[in-house]
Design a protein around this nucleic acid. Structure first.
Lengths: 336, 336
DNA sequence: GGGAGAACTGGAAGCGCTCCCAAACGCGTG
DNA sequence: CACGCGTTTGGGAGCGCTTCCAGTTCTCCC
């Protein structure tokens, strides 16, 4: 039951010990000017002697700044966050926040309750900034956040409008890369399994696919829409096979879906990449372990998180950063 | 540049509009007793009319409660959090915190800076509670947290001491299950690739392996220690093969390592499960996509998060919950 | 109808910090 | 030596909320 409870050390005690006024002590702590060298040192000594640490709530109350930013995932599916993608985003964000005094609070605005909470947070500016990853189209939160007056940077772009500040991966470019690769290896009847069409990533990847085929003068009609999930990929591949039995390649908008599709192909007796070539997207761990390993498009997820955090810091500091689109690149493996 | 800035609505304004004193208004908000029905309703009306939301900092300052709990990952490796494992933990935690007014703040105590920060947080009790996942043996933070007087629940157990409150998966039981399964399928020269021996999970899984073989009267000497990573698994499997060429099964303490080991076996021309059977641990997505898919031990990761959060809430409420060990179970796939 | 006790009310004192502002101080100059 | 200017200093008023406490109003019963 040992317990370091002890009452908190306050600024007043520090001031007293250094025999200065509270104001002076405060100025030293925020290293503001107008303090003589002697007193500055006296205060610093008192601080270390007493082990003083400022009380965040009090400071927040006085300055009207919270000392925390939030990362919010807005989605209708409570499980999206279980995607390793977010874990990496968080690592990126943390790595830059670590250099500051800001805390990272996590909100999953996945239920109505969560949405309300986030909304309230913005309305009452109980956060210094927001990083928002909005995972579906008609998300009212996205608009609301953009206009709340709180610094907001988007991770990925909502489809409904173009936010002022965002960082996104070059989904369209990546998809084009992948599809061009398929074309370059001699495929001509190239299908696609898309992600959700109410997410900008899904849309952009679909566009990239279309562009690449248009340039090559190939048919873009072999399309089935799915939802990024493995099961979705499975279903879509069945449908594709039934509708376009002649296809010789598939660009799949996520590795999870590709894993599902791959199983369907194998079960159907198609050889990969012999009869059908397959490209995924994201380059998650799974992509390396399928049989054959997946050729896929890799995006710099940690950088994405890092840049979001940097952009937010800039915003908070009063700058006006420009949106950022991070490059994606093709990772060749054995499925093509 | 639209901006909902507006000054914040304060309790005083609510009180005035409801023509009561601030005290009464405050009592209504915290639904404390000693308020007449009429005034209670008047206040509530004023609150909704004005769209009042209490200021968290002010409340925190007055009550000495922060309204936030932190999840900290203490490790010497900044990348551990990229493990999907944590993403799921977070989902579990969020799902129960969502029912409360508490926020979840995330800290990666991975650098010295992060450690200090966490320490300071505890020392000055700027959090209402802590969930700590300590990922290595000699972590001074674990001890410090345990004695800080702040409610702390551990996720997994440190090896150095038994904390008062923790929730852990039954690693030993799971390992025993896995090994017994190998025995039951007729294997007799069963090796193991362990995790880190300075993590309790690694240790417990090793113990489970030993127990099962001891009961079966089999040899427990075919052991190589590794570090949970895929590369580690690769190296370990090479060593195992060189040292004990006669082995007919391997219990591998993580799926990542198992994936690495599997590749080595296949490359060495060993058939799986024909010549060598393989069992992993964790049941991550990868396990389903290897070739053959991995038999593995599944732990209820989201529940783990959920129970950690529940336990912490109980602790904060002043209860004394009992530690929890969650069951693990064997998932049979084609690698055995 | 009077009185005791319970229920309600609002004033005021904080919680620990920031920051404005008036007062005090030091110093160079005429 | 007095004066003026630029620095440094500390008093004090908040930031918005909770909570103690003393005073007031209601109830209910004899």
């Amino acid at each position: 039951m040992s317990d370091l409870r002890k009452r908190q050390v306050t600024l007043d005690e520090v001031a007293e010990r250094a025999s200065v006024s509270r104001s002076v002590a405060s100025r030293v702590l925020n290293n503001a000017p107008h303090v003589s060298k002697a007193k500055r040192e006296a205060v610093q000594r008192a601080v270390t002697d007493l082990g003083y640490v400022p009380n965040a709530s009090a400071r927040a109350l006085a300055t009207q700044q919270v000392g925390a930013v939030v990362l919010a995932i807005s989605s209708d599916n409570p499980l999206v966050f279980a995607d390793p993608f977010f874990a990496e985003i968080v690592v990126g964000i943390s790595s830059v926040l670590e250099e500051t005094e800001l805390e990272l609070v996590l909100m999953m605005a996945t239920s109505a309750r969560g949405q309300t909470r986030l909304e309230r947070l913005l309305r009452t500016r109980q956060t210094d900034g927001l990083m928002l990853m909005s995972m579906h189209d008609d998300d009212p939160l996205a608009q609301f956040a953009e206009q709340s007056g709180v610094p907001v940077v988007f991770g990925g772009r909502p489809v409904a409008f173009e936010p002022r500040y965002y960082v996104d991966a070059d989904n369209r470019g990546g998809a084009r890369l992948a599809t061009e690769h398929l074309v370059a290896t001699g495929r001509t009847r190239i299908a696609t399994i898309t992600g959700r069409m109410d997410e900008s990533a899904g849309l952009a990847r679909y566009k990239g696919y279309q562009e690449a085929l248009a340039v090559a003068g190939l048919d873009t009609s072999r399309v089935v829409h799915a939802d990024f999930s493995e099961d979705g990929g499975t279903r879509a591949m069945h449908e594709l096979l039934a509708t376009y039995p002649d296809l010789d390649a598939v660009f799949v908008a996520s590795d999870q879906m590709a894993a599902g599709a791959l199983r369907v192909l194998t079960d159907a007796g198609k050889t990969v990449p012999g009869e059908v070539a397959l490209v995924g997207f994201n380059d998650v761990a799974t992509a390396r372990h399928t049989n054959p390993p997946l050729t896929t498009v890799s995006q710099p997820i940690q950088s994405l998180g890092r840049e979001m955090a940097r952009m937010l810091l800039a915003l908070i500091a009063g700058d006006a950063p420009t949106p950022l689109i991070l490059p994606t690149r093709l990772v060749r493996r054995a499925s093509t």
